[in-house]
């Protein structure tokens, strides 16, 4: 029996015992045990990612996760006073895992990343890509939020000729694979003079069917009498949308922001097709440039990926509070 099997059996046994003694405690235990198991499975790749990014590129493939602490700081391969690259060492006996690099755990990947990097079009500092990505993602989110929620409101709360047909059309437009539309889309972007500008990425995506549909579904659940009441009070249609409806779908607004921000943050193919100047590139494109075609040196790429995770993770934490019961439902009840 393997260690893991024993561990799981002990866990299950513990749960059973708890259930017998104090059922309530047992339930909480089961819930957390499940969460911890699922959470660990989900986070495992991150542990791997973090390990890979702090390992020296020379030992990245030697250990699945981190090397044992005993070799974290191991002596370097030295000939005389010079630290010598492995393939120049004459005495092969010197070359073994423990002595190959100065220290197996270091920040070399991050240091290499956080500089004026040599690119095909001159030096560009890594922070520039972060700012590009921040701008693209936040602008796309802001535009998308405004226009999509407006559309969603109209689709949910107005009855107008062609509404159901329009909804079917919208859904249909979601289903057409982008590959088929690429060439004509490319032509439009080119004819509008959007090539190599952020307009090529922001304008076509500024209102998404996906968002309209999401807000339509969220707003459907809001009672119509709130709108009626607003009209009786003499509020204009736009004001009703802005001041009465939108505050009620705050959790969905947060979900939309998170998902749109992330979608743009990680989008890769479209910016790669439409942008050409190196300083304009967003983070994923710039990171992908670090991975070679023949020789995939992914240590530095993984370090970049780790940095790239930080802003959306902060956003996620900031949005946490929107997903806590009882904060917003009060306003619905009025």
């Amino acid at each position: 029996m393997s260690g893991l099997q024993t561990f799981l059996l002990v866990l299950a046994g513990l749960g059973l015992v708890l259930f017998l003694i104090r059922p309530k405690l047992g339930r909480a235990y089961v819930r957390y045990a499940m969460l911890i198991l699922v959470g660990t499975l989900m986070m495992l790749p991150f542990v791997w990612l973090i390990s890979a990014s702090v390992k020296d590129p020379d030992v990245i493939n030697d250990y699945t996760f981190l090397p044992p602490p005993s070799v974290w700081r191991s002596p370097s391969v030295r000939e005389g006073d010079q630290r010598v690259a492995v393939d120049e060492v004459t005495d092969q006996a010197l070359v073994n895992e423990a002595t190959r690099v100065e220290s197996t755990i270091n920040s070399r990947n991050f240091r290499d990343l956080w500089t004026d990097q040599q690119t095909p079009q001159g030096p560009v500092h890594f922070s520039r890509y972060i700012i590009n990505s921040l701008f693209l993602s936040s602008a796309a989110t802001t535009l998308g939020l405004i226009f999509s929620s407006m559309g969603g409101y109209a689709m949910a709360k107005y009855r107008f000729p062609g509404r159901s047909g329009l909804l079917a059309f919208m859904l249909a437009s979601l289903t057409i694979p982008g590959v088929v539309l690429l060439a004509p889309n490319f032509e439009i972007i080119y004819r509008l003079g959007f090539m190599d500008t952020y307009a090529a990425l922001l304008i076509p995506g500024c209102v998404s069917v996906f968002g309209i549909f999401l807000f339509r579904q969220a707003i459907l659940g809001i009672p119509d009498d709130i709108i009626e009441a607003g009209r009786i009070d003499g509020a204009g249609e736009f004001r009703i949308y802005l001041t009465l409806i939108m505050p009620l779908v705050r959790p969905m607004t947060s979900a939309f922001c998170l998902i749109t921000f992330l979608g743009t943050w990680n989008s890769f193919l479209a910016p790669n097709i439409f942008l050409q100047s190196q300083p304009k590139l967003p983070l994923p494109v710039a990171l992908n440039q670090l991975v070679g075609v023949y020789d995939q040196q992914y240590g530095i790429y993984l370090a970049g990926t780790l940095i790239a995770i930080v802003p959306p993770a902060i956003l996620f934490f900031a949005l946490q509070r929107e997903f806590i019961s009882g904060l917003t439902s009060g306003s619905v009840k009025q």
Partner: peptide, 28 residues
């Protein structure tokens, strides 16, 4: 604020980074 802090923060980021990029673009 009624729409949550996140959209506000995102809007501010969009404006700030937009201004910054605009200036950089002008100078290049």
């Amino acid at each position: 604020y009624p729409y949550g802090k996140a959209p506000l923060a995102i809007l501010i980021i969009a404006i700030l980074s937009g201004i910054w990029l605009f200036i950089v673009e002008l100078r290049s």
